[in-house]
Structures are given as structure tokens and as C-alpha cells.
Design a protein around this nucleic acid. Structure first.
Lengths: 185, 185
DNA sequence: CTTGTTATGTACCGATCGGTACAAACATCT
DNA sequence: AGATGTTTGTACCGATCGGTACATAACAAG
């Protein structure tokens, strides 16, 4: 249901009315409630699960499992840029976090951001940083991505996101494996 | 109308129903529409104007006018920490930017973030940085503040905001005048 | 074709939305 | 006191909200 995700992403939880969802997906209420007997809340939950699965597969798992942590971090920045369409796409979970659904989906929201920050910090520890510094940088990066998305949207300039991502990648060491700098003496 | 601001801050534009506003402010519809004939939209606009005035007075003007740019930047971080209650308070304009009111108040939202970024960058230029670097750092700081607010709310830990603000202050040189480091040889 | 299951459109429900109308209450001033 | 102007409460409006009921349409299996 990519359409379903996009409706929630563009209008938030409260703003995504059933009529909007129906118009966007081409499904009537009958179909909608056939696939999601739990109504709007189940639709949003399924969307959140889908997003979580994407990040789990493309970001979190590599950060945890890749034997080369720096490569995994570089891949994370690439995946992030791709997912958010270089700043043209908003973060649905961030939207849910501050707007309308923060209580309803508190668990999923917390899990998403906590997992991201933690797996990133752990990857940094594995690549040689001390734990305290790693947590700081991880928070800086995950928060920086969210803030760049907000800023890019607010001033209507995706370039803000691109620049932020580049800065954050340098800071996280994720560009080193791309630039092949550290491998040179 | 501090209550009015808080209702919008906690529920967003769409979420702040007239019944919620009435309950929070203690005013009935009669009074509400007496003071704001333009209805909800005028209420939100007045709230945005109030916030803009606060930042203009406490942040933007000092950044522009203070003969000591580094002191102004340090004061900015202090004011920011105070305004957002060390991460316990959300940024209403950020909420409006991504959730429900981004089109309706696009001008005010854009102005807020653009002014903040620009005046901060200019202060940095005045304190000796080159313009390109100044813009980068300014975007980093303003975006970082927004992101830290999102993250702090999402994981329900105001400490995230405190740590982020400290990092950003160091990065922006705003702590130098506090620590009295640069004045020593 | 018949049958059983899955999918869909439509009509409806009570609740709430933002907004309007207006008369009673209140204050203010001569 | 009386007259004037400002604040309030309340009843109401049409529209839309999320959700339910149910009859029908589409379809696969036999």
C-alpha cells in the first residue's frame, strides 16, 4: 500500500481522512474496512510496521551485522538520502511524533528512533570510537536528519537536506569509506 | 493568550478544535469569535505573530545588532534553551511546518526559519567566518535544534535536547564567550 | 452452471467539526 | 437611573468525521 503511506505522510494521522485515503488509493470504505477491520488505526499501524521493516532491512540490520561498520554507516547515509528523496519526502514517523499520533503510536515511534540511534552508536563503537562519543554523534546524526527534513520543508529547499546529510556523513565517518581516505597512509 | 499558544503547540492546527481551545482558555465561542472574528485561522495567525515577535526581540535582533556577535550567539543558545524548556516544549512552527498548516501559513513558517538561519549566519560572518561556512553552520544549528526537539519528544527524553544544544553551541562558537577561552592567549 | 468466498459500493449512524445568530449580562459614562 | 457599548452563553447550521450494515458484484473451485 504505497498510496496509503503517502496519504499519512502528507496529511498526518488526523489529517488523513477516510475520504482522502479512499480517493488516493481508489478503494471504497467497503474494501478499506475489509482489509483493515481495525479502521484507521490499523491502517496507520500497518504503515508504521512497513516503514519499520524497510529501515530494519536497509539500515538497522546492516549497521548491526556488517563486518565493516564504516561501510554500513556510509550505506546508511545513502539509504537515507534515497528514502527521503534528497529532502523532498518527509519522515512520517517524525510527523507522527510531534503532531497528532504521538500518544497512540508512542511505542512504534520510540522504537524507530531509539533503534536507529542505538544501532548507529554501536556501529561507531565497533569502528573504534568510545561509547560516550558514539552516542553523542549518533544522536547528532539522527536528530540532524530529522531537523534537516523540517528545515528543508519549511524553507521549501531540498538543498538544505542535501547539505546537512553531507555534513553529518563527514561527522559520522561515513564518507571515509567512500572517499577511500583512511585506507591511504 | 499563552493558553491559546499552548493548545496549538500541543495539538497542531487541525487538532486544536474550538472545543479544546474553549476548554483550555475558559472562553466560550462567543468570546473567541469576538476577539478573533476570522475564526481559527486568525487565532493561529496571532499565535504565530506572537512567537515571531518573541524570537525577533530575544534572538534575531540581538544577532543582528549586538556589537559582539559571539556574545549574541551565546545568548541565542540560552534563549533557545529557555524557550523550549530544555526540550520539554515543542516548536509550534516546526509542527505547523510538517503537519497540517504548512500551506496555510507557508509565509510565516518560511520567514521564521529563514530569518533565524540568515541572521545567525550573518552574525558568524561578522565574527570572522567566511560566508559559505557560516551558512553551513547556521543551517546545522537551526536544523539541529529542530531535530533535537523531535528526537527528544519521540524518545521522551529531554536530555537529548540538552546534549544537542551543548554540541551545537560548541560548534557555533557560542560557548567560547561563556568559557572565556578565546580571550586567553 | 453452481457454489462458496472474497471484494466492493452505498446508504446510513451518532458525534464532532468550524462557524453564525442573537439575546442576555456586564461594564462604562453622563 | 438611563443609555451605550462591550463581552459572554447558548442554540443552532451544514459539512464532515470514523465507523457499521448489508446487498451485490467478482471470482475461483467443483
Amino acid at each position: 500500500m504505497p498510496d496509503l503511506i503517502e496519504v499519512f505522510r502528507e496529511h498526518g494521522y488526523e489529517g488523513a481522512s477516510l475520504s482522502l485515503i479512499g480517493a488516493r488509493t481508489g478503494l471504497g470504505k467497503g474494501s478499506l474496512y475489509h482489509f483493515f477491520p481495525g479502521g484507521k488505526e490499523e491502517m496507520a499501524a500497518s504503515v508504521l510496521a512497513e516503514i519499520d521493516a524497510w529501515f530494519e532491512h536497509r539500515v538497522f540490520a546492516p549497521l548491526r551485522g556488517d563486518p565493516d561498520p564504516e561501510a554500513a554507516i556510509a550505506a546508511m547515509f545513502q539509504a537515507t538520502d534515497l528514502y527521503f528523496r534528497s529532502g523532498a519526502r518527509m519522515c512520517l514517523i517524525g510527523i507522527f511524533a510531534l503532531c497528532d499520533a504521538r500518544d497512540r503510536f508512542a511505542g512504534a515511534i520510540h522504537g524507530y528512533f531509539a533503534t536507529w540511534t542505538q544501532t548507529l552508536a554501536e556501529a561507531m563503537v565497533r569502528s573504534g570510537r568510545n561509547p560516550g562519543e558514539a552516542r553523542d554523534i549518533a544522536e547528532d546524526i539522527v536528530g540532524g536528519i530529522q531537523g534537516a527534513l523540517v528545515l528543508a520543508r519549511a524553507v521549501n529547499d531540498p538543498g538544505v537536506f542535501a547539505r546537512a546529510l553531507r555534513r553529518l556523513a563527514v561527522r559520522g565517518g561515513g564518507l571515509s569509506s567512500v572517499r577511500h581516505r583512511d585506507t591511504q597512509p
